[in-house]
Write a protein that binds this DNA or RNA. Structure first.
Lengths: 338, 338
DNA sequence: ACGAACGTTTGAATCGTTTTCGGGGGTGGC
DNA sequence: GCCACCCCCGAAAACGATTCAAACGTTCGT
């Protein structure tokens, strides 16, 4: 049914090799022949069979992306940034949402490897590096984004989480908060980094976290708002209670704000809140949410470029790390001074 | 580098055909041979080369999904629902975000066809059906979701938009609104259907849209909040001004609410607002947003199942339409009575 | 004891491309 | 007029799997 090079070659009385060369702009084809071939391609609406090409070249022009949750705007934006860059280069993106399940994530990575993606880009929720060892065995280049592993030498694109945490907390301090709590995320590098930043910023001002002021949200990747709500209720029982809260991510921060309002307190007057991630609708929330912007689109773009360079590299290259600088975005939820 | 069937066959002194059959659970292989092959596959960590398989079978076990904007929660949820079903069947999903650009969308569809996806699932922003004629020529099954075209006999999965619009407006009427405006979307079937529903519901109560009460948001797919804001400012200049607004989608509704509040009016007391789509964070907004739920995950799942059945069908089947029933979700933005 | 029937295995062709290498024809230099 | 080039083009061999039909060794019936 579909048109093949063979058909074009037959029609024009040339060989398939010639057709193939025209298709890829090889120089050693005469101008006239090239025209004829191109014309016929147009007429027949020829599309090369990428599977066949992949078989012989060993390259699929496809990248794999694995994220914990596509619905989370952060990852959706990363995906968009990625595909924006890849599209221009003729690459496509095979996306899987691992739904926050480490086991599923492993399987998806296997699946993508079987499909011979040229490179993998993963925001992992796994605890172990086993999966990635397998990827290394197959010599498939891969890039971690957002979250990384200690003890795994790998390409990484993300933000400086410690700086993000510090930025947020310094801002709260400047706004006059003195009892700053932190609703932290799960045991992944991002959450750990932000906790460190939180502590560092406090220490810089001679402060330290009060007992019970760091509380963990249960499920940060999925329905973070709910765990944020629970966490904040816990914090509200403390005495003295916090006057500022830095949250691991924006959904959690939304839950936190809801808990505060439900308790009859005001944001930011009684308690200032800041999140992290700067999701698109942060401005439209109950209380417009201050946040730390991670420039997710840029993460996607940088990862895409890095992936392409890895694919093109003939020799294995030393893993690189790209750390983007987080930026503070102040909105009403933390604005106490003019 | 990678292990091939040939390697396993050589190691075991059998033919590649035997290995191939074991892999696919063909019945005509002796139990002992099968065991040996399986064992060796495990040892070598064999993964079939899907590109090679695709070449000979003509099936890629891959589906293509084209959406206007991956960051829009509706489409992200659809994608999630899709991949949830496909994963189990060993299918992968090639996703492209067309960024609301019809020309780009065409190209992406071409790209996916070149990759020989087994079926296409498209939420289109195009004006013409040209692209889909091409898809039909290639005999690639495709399914439209969310938006459809008049005069195009195609598989479709979506919600009953007219019902959605009617549901929203009836609710506003019940809440006591009498001057109900509509911020409509672009010239696609969803927006048109919702407008119809809006008119029908009014007509049922002997009402009709006041002059100027239907206003169009500029860019509904991308940053709908901004166009919602503009549209509402326009509505606020009318006299009498609306006491209820039904919005094409939730992002627009958020912009609308912002405009109302900025004008010093209250929601829902002065003006009640309802959106459409029921995005996950609707509850956490400035004013928790009433909305029409479209069950996006179900759309994804139904589309996935339909796609799989189309792929398996040996003969072309008559296009089917799956219409899901929209559901009303009442929150604060439209609650005027207890 | 012989052929048929059965269950298992395999050789060869195929899918649509790319790659490598060499050949033919024209051109220019000498 | 001959040789050396340079341009174009094509033949053949991959790539890694599947499919089809034929071959193989056993077992069974008679």
């Amino acid at each position: 049914m579909a048109v093949r090079m063979k058909d074009i070659a037959r029609d024009l009385g040339v060989s398939v090799v010639t057709v193939s060369k025209v298709l890829r702009n090889h120089s050693d084809i005469g101008a006239e022949t090239r025209e004829r071939v191109l014309k016929r391609m147009k007429e027949l609406n020829y599309r090369p069979n990428l599977a066949a090409r992949a078989l012989v070249t060993g390259r699929t022009n496809t990248l794999g992306l694995v994220v914990p949750d596509l619905v989370h705007p952060f990852f959706a934006e990363v995906a968009k940034g990625l595909s924006h860059v890849l599209r221009k280069k003729g690459y496509s993106l095979l996306i899987s949402s691992a739904e926050g399940d480490a086991e599923l994530e492993k399987q998806e990575i296997e699946q993508l490897m079987a499909r011979r993606v040229d490179a993998l880009i993963v925001a992992s929720t796994q605890w172990t590096v086993e999966s990635f060892r397998r990827v290394e065995e197959q010599k498939i280049p891969y890039i971690l984004i957002d979250r990384r592993f200690v003890g795994l030498q790998a390409n990484f694109v993300g933000v400086d989480d410690e700086a993000a945490g510090a930025l947020a907390v310094e801002h709260l301090i400047e706004q006059g908060c003195r009892r700053i709590a932190h609703v932290r995320g799960p045991e992944v590098s991002t959450a750990i980094g932000r906790v460190e930043g939180y502590k560092r910023a406090l220490a810089n001002r001679g402060l330290s976290p009060l007992p019970g002021f760091i509380v963990a949200g249960k499920s940060a990747d999925d329905r973070g708002d709910l765990s944020g709500y629970d966490a904040m209720r816990q914090l509200l029982r403390l005495d003295p209670r916090p006057d500022g809260v830095f949250c691991y991510n924006d959904p959690m921060a939304m839950g936190v704000i809801k808990a505060i309002l439900d308790a009859g307190l005001r944001v930011p007057r009684d308690i200032a809140v800041i999140g992290c991630g700067n999701v698109v609708y942060a401005e439209l929330l109950r209380v417009p949410l201050s946040s730390i912007d991670q420039d997710s689109a840029a993460i996607g773009e940088r990862a895409a470029k890095m992936a392409l360079s890895l694919v093109d590299a003939k020799t294995p290259v030393r893993p690189r790390t790209v750390l983007l600088e987080p930026k503070l975005v102040v909105r009403e939820s933390s604005r106490r001074k003019t």
